Simulated scan of single mutants.
Amino acid sequence: MTTAPQPTSVPPPGLALGAVGGAGRPGSSRIACPLPDGGLLDVGSLATAQRGPFPDLLTAPNLDRLLDAGAPVWREVVDWLRSWRDDHEKAVAHRLPAEGLVPVLPFTVADYVDFYACEQHARNAGLIFRPDAEPLTPNWGHMPVGYHGRAGTVRVSGSPVTRPAGQRAAGDFGPTRALDVEAELGFVLGGPVPGPVPVDDAGDHVFGVVLLNDWSARDVQGFESRPLGPHLGKSFATSISAWVTPIGELDAARVPLPEHRDPALPHLTPREPARGLDVALSVYLNGHRIADPPAADLYWSAEQMVAHLTSNGASLRAGDLLGSGTVSGPDRDGFGSLLELSWNGRDPIALPGGPPRTWLADGDEVVITATAPAADGSRFSLGEVRGRIRPA
Rank of each mutant, 00 (worst) to 15 (best):
P53R: 10
V188N: 04
A302C: 10
V102M: 14
A242E: 14
L268N: 01
T176Y: 12
S235N: 12
H231Y: 04
P97D: 09
E272C: 02
L185F: 08
V220M: 04
A295G: 14
T358Q: 11
L66C: 13
F223M: 12
G126K: 12
D201S: 15
V366D: 14
Q167P: 00
P352A: 00
A280R: 14
P348C: 09
N213A: 13
A117H: 01
F173H: 01
E272A: 15
G21S: 06
V220T: 12
L46C: 05
G345Q: 05
L277V: 08
P131L: 07
G166E: 12
S159T: 15
V220N: 08
L281T: 11
S225H: 11
P246Y: 01
A165Q: 15
P270D: 15
H288A: 15
P273S: 15
H142K: 10
C33V: 02
L228H: 15
D292L: 03
V113P: 07
L212Q: 02
S342M: 08
E259F: 03
E134K: 12
V327F: 02
L250D: 14
R386N: 10
V181S: 11
P53E: 03
L127Y: 03
A202N: 08
N62L: 01
Q50D: 14
L81Q: 08
L63S: 06
P131A: 10
P103E: 05
P227F: 07
P7G: 02
S378G: 14
R317I: 01
S342R: 00
R332M: 04
P246E: 08
S337N: 03
K234C: 08
D292W: 00
F223S: 04
E134Y: 06
T269I: 09
V113H: 15
S225M: 11
D362Q: 00
R379C: 04
G21V: 01
Y116E: 06
G44C: 07
A295T: 12
P293N: 12
G323L: 09
G190W: 03
R150H: 09
G325W: 00
G141H: 01
S301C: 12
E99F: 11
G171L: 09
S315L: 06
L101G: 13
T245L: 01
H288K: 01
Q6G: 13
A60L: 04
S337M: 08
